[in-house]
């Protein structure tokens, strides 16, 4: 924990060593996150590199109040990957039906730990149905709020409030049983 905090401080101060360390520690993870959205290996790596570069060169990207740098990076990469995917989908007028549940397609990466995945499923199962549907669609289905709204036939405001409530509840679930 101490180490992570030191790293975050160094990152904020743009110590080049911090970037190196962040890279060593999180690159594989961040690529896995990007790959789960984008598919291709090199697309995923491009996505992570571009994002890291942008974060590093931008003054106001990460600050200590935000909490864990690791979580911050995960969400940034996910957002970046999702934005790229949506852009590509718009460009090619592809429909967005494919649910990205196939996490095994990255064979060279660590095999999916089914115990952990079960933990996620269990946590999701604790949500009321209405909340679970939107959180699952958002997380596994990579859907935007408007896509979910039209898919479930719900007003945007309802989608928002269910997502917020669902994530809040999941937070309690995860922190209650943290490793």
């Amino acid at each position: 924990m101490h180490l992570a905090r030191d790293l975050e401080q160094a990152f904020v101060e743009r110590d080049p060593q911090a970037l190196d360390t962040v890279y060593s520690l999180y690159f594989a993870l961040l690529c896995a996150v990007a790959r789960s959205t984008l598919g291709g290996e090199s697309d995923a790596e491009d996505c992570v590199h571009d994002l890291m570069l942008r974060i590093w060169l931008s003054k106001d990207s990460y600050r200590l109040e935000r909490g864990a740098l690791r979580s911050y990076l995960i969400v940034c990469v996910r957002n970046e990957a999702l934005a790229r995917k949506r852009k590509a989908a718009r460009r090619h007028a592809l429909d967005v039906h494919a649910m990205r549940m196939n996490v095994d397609d990255s064979a060279d990466f660590a095999a999916v730990d089914h115990v952990e995945l079960k933990r996620l499923r269990d946590a999701l199962r604790t949500l009321p149905d209405a909340q679970r549907a939107v959180v699952e669609l958002a997380y596994f289905g990579d859907r935007s709020q408007s896509e979910i709204s039209s898919e479930l036939g719900l007003p945007l405001g309802t989608v928002k409030s269910r997502v917020a409530a669902g994530l809040q509840k999941l937070a309690a679930e995860f922190t209650g049983k943290s490793r």
């Binding site: 520690l25 999180y26 594989a28 993870l29 896995a32 996150v33 789960s36 600050r63 109040e65 935000r66 909490g67 864990a68 690791r70 979580s71 911050y72 995960i74 969400v75 996910r78 996490v103 990466f109 660590a110 999916v112 730990d113 952990e116 995945l117 933990r119 996620l120 946590a123 997380y139 994530l167 999941l170 937070a171 995860f174 922190t175 943290s178």
Partner: peptide, 23 residues
Amino acid sequence: CASALGAHEATVAAMVDAEFPTP
């Protein structure tokens, strides 16, 4: 809001961790 967002990010990161047990 920075810390509220950070808390949400931690939850999403926990979901990611459960999905991808990684470094």
